[in-house]
Design a protein around this nucleic acid. Structure first.
Length: 244
DNA sequence: AAGATTTGCAACCGCATGAAA
DNA sequence: GTTTCATGCGGTTGCAAATCT
């Protein structure tokens, strides 16, 4: 009847991964692949469940992952895709090479959502909050203060130059509309990404560099080294330019 | 300086779907 | 056809670091 359980849940380890575990998982996947996640932890000598291994690989260890904050262009793309796709993070992530759904979801919840609220844009509907709430706000002027309201007050000195885009003085007169305008301006760039037939990962696989070489060059297994990371990012950027 | 609070991210949880037995 | 599990996905939590009081 049915299949065997993927793991004995009583014996699996939980919590943060160690560098040693990362190395074991990477070494195993690079030499054997991951045709069946259920078998990976046992064969790799890890006391983790397959699900945990899969998440660790896809969200952190995969060699094609970018590190660091999303760029302005990536943020704009996420916002645009979110407007049309909603919280379908995996679909959104598939349009951002080197980014994971988890990373995008986290970035949305911690950065983008707040920026949009600060600019008076509803992060759910992507419409101006003023347009949506003017009637209800007038009806209930003493409505309770939300966390988002608190954020807006706390960040009243927010400088658009640090955020989504730089805007002209004229546009500053109406920051909400200005933001929507910049979104339109980016449509061409976004369109290019939408039309990209060959996903980034396929370009990576087809590059002359082997995956082992790539990993050895770019993976630090979680051991922080900012300078190395900076150089690595430069290397990745160069590689992407070559591939393009 | 120290405790409290907030922030950001990695990892886990639980559900839906499809496939294997 | 039914049961059981693998996988993928989105939501949520836990915790270390940063910031505030």
């Amino acid at each position: 009847m049915g299949r065997q359980p993927c793991c004995d849940k009583l014996k699996v380890k939980k919590g943060p991964w160690t560098a040693e575990e990362d190395k074991k998982l990477v070494a195993f996947i690079l030499s054997n692949g991951h045709c069946c996640w259920r078998a990976v932890p046992k064969l790799a000598g890890l006391l983790r469940c397959g699900k945990s291994c899969r998440l660790r690989w896809t969200n952190y260890l995969r060699p094609d992952l970018k590190r660091g904050l999303l760029t302005d262009a990536e943020e704009k793309l996420v916002i645009d895709l979110h407007a049309s796709l909603g919280n379908r993070w995996s679909k959104i992530a598939s349009r951002l090479p080197g980014r994971t759904d988890n990373e995008i979801k986290n970035h949305w919840n911690t950065h983008i959502k707040k920026k949009l609220l600060k600019m008076g844009i509803d992060p759910v509907t992507h419409k101006l909050l003023h347009d949506q709430t003017s009637s209800t706000a007038a009806a209930s002027p003493n409505s309770t203060v939300t966390d988002d309201d608190k954020f807006s007050k706390k960040h009243e000195s927010f400088d658009p130059k640090d955020g989504i885009n730089q805007v002209s003085q004229e546009e500053n007169a109406n920051p909400q509309q200005s933001f929507l305008n910049t979104m339109n301006r980016d449509e061409q760039v976004i369109g290019c990404l939408w039309d990209d037939d060959m996903p980034f990962i396929e370009k990576l696989w087809s590059s002359p560099m082997s995956i082992e070489e790539w990993l050895l060059d770019y993976q630090d297994f979680g051991i922080g080294d900012l300078e190395l990371e900076r150089v690595e990012r430069g290397g990745l950027a160069d590689e992407q330019i070559k591939l393009n």
